[in-house]
Computed example of a mutant assay.
Amino acid sequence: MVRVLFVCLGNICRSPMAEAIFRDLVKKENLSDKIEVDSGGTGNWHSGNVPHKGTRILLDREKISYEGILARQVEENDWDAFDYIIAMDEQNIEDLGKIHKADDSVIVMKLMDFVDNSPEVDVPDPYYTGNFDYTFQLVSAGCIQLLNYMKEKHHF
């Protein structure tokens, strides 16, 4: 089983959006028995909360389930539990480094690293920008490319 953890700041906008989209893609590709997906935040302000209303509205519109997704904070033991930790921006990468020192046991990358010629290097936080549609476009593109990468690397 390959396990993926999506990470943003508060785990209510971008990373739960990525978790839901990626989970949906994995299900559609009949890979649910090979890939597990979760999300977390580098901060704990929203722990236990459902995704932000803007994220829920978008996922509902796209008919993508977010059932069971509740905000949680990333913990040091996540490096033992996951094969991939995929951050939404450079600040998340820096914050992850404060939780666990970098090593080769887990692939830690930004989601946009998987998208060739991406218009952004980081996924903008719609909590601050209010632009959930743009975030959805970027996250969707990143999730598709991440899944393609994983299918090739793990021979799914």
Rank of each mutant, 00 (worst) to 15 (best):
V121L: 01
V123P: 04
T42C: 02
I107D: 09
E90D: 09
L25E: 09
D95K: 10
W79Y: 14
L59F: 07
E75K: 15
L146R: 07
I35W: 04
E94Y: 07
E76V: 10
Y149M: 05
D95F: 05
M112R: 05
D89F: 09
Y134L: 14
S39L: 08
Y127F: 13
S32H: 02
Q73N: 04
F6I: 04
L96V: 01
A102Q: 00
I57L: 11
G97Q: 04
L31Q: 04
A20M: 06
V37A: 03
D125M: 09
I86A: 04
D104C: 01
F82Y: 15
D33Y: 03
G68V: 00
D103P: 05
V50R: 15
I99V: 15
Y128E: 06
K63Q: 12
D122H: 14
K153C: 07
D80A: 13
A102K: 14
A141K: 12
G40V: 00
A18L: 13
A71R: 08
H46G: 07
A141N: 12
R14T: 06
D122G: 08
A71D: 04
T135P: 05
E76S: 14
I93W: 01
I69Y: 13
S105V: 04
I144P: 00
S105I: 10
I57D: 14
D122I: 01
D133G: 03
K53R: 14
Q137H: 01
C143I: 10
M112T: 01
E90R: 13
K34G: 08
V4I: 08
V108I: 15
I21E: 09
G48Q: 12
F132H: 11
L59T: 01
I99P: 00
Q73M: 14
I144G: 00
P51L: 13
L147V: 13
I85K: 04
E36Q: 15
S140E: 01
G54D: 12
W45T: 04
A87P: 02
E75T: 12
P119Y: 01
N49H: 13
G40H: 13
V121A: 03
D80Y: 03
N44C: 13
R56E: 06
I21F: 05
A20P: 10
E19A: 10
G48I: 07
W45L: 12
S47H: 12
A71C: 10
I93K: 05
E62A: 10
L96Y: 02
S15I: 08
L111A: 07
T42P: 02
I69H: 08
V123Y: 09
G130T: 14
S65R: 01
D60P: 04
Y127M: 00
L96H: 01
K63E: 12
D116E: 13
D89Y: 00
F132L: 11
K101L: 14
D113P: 01
D33L: 06
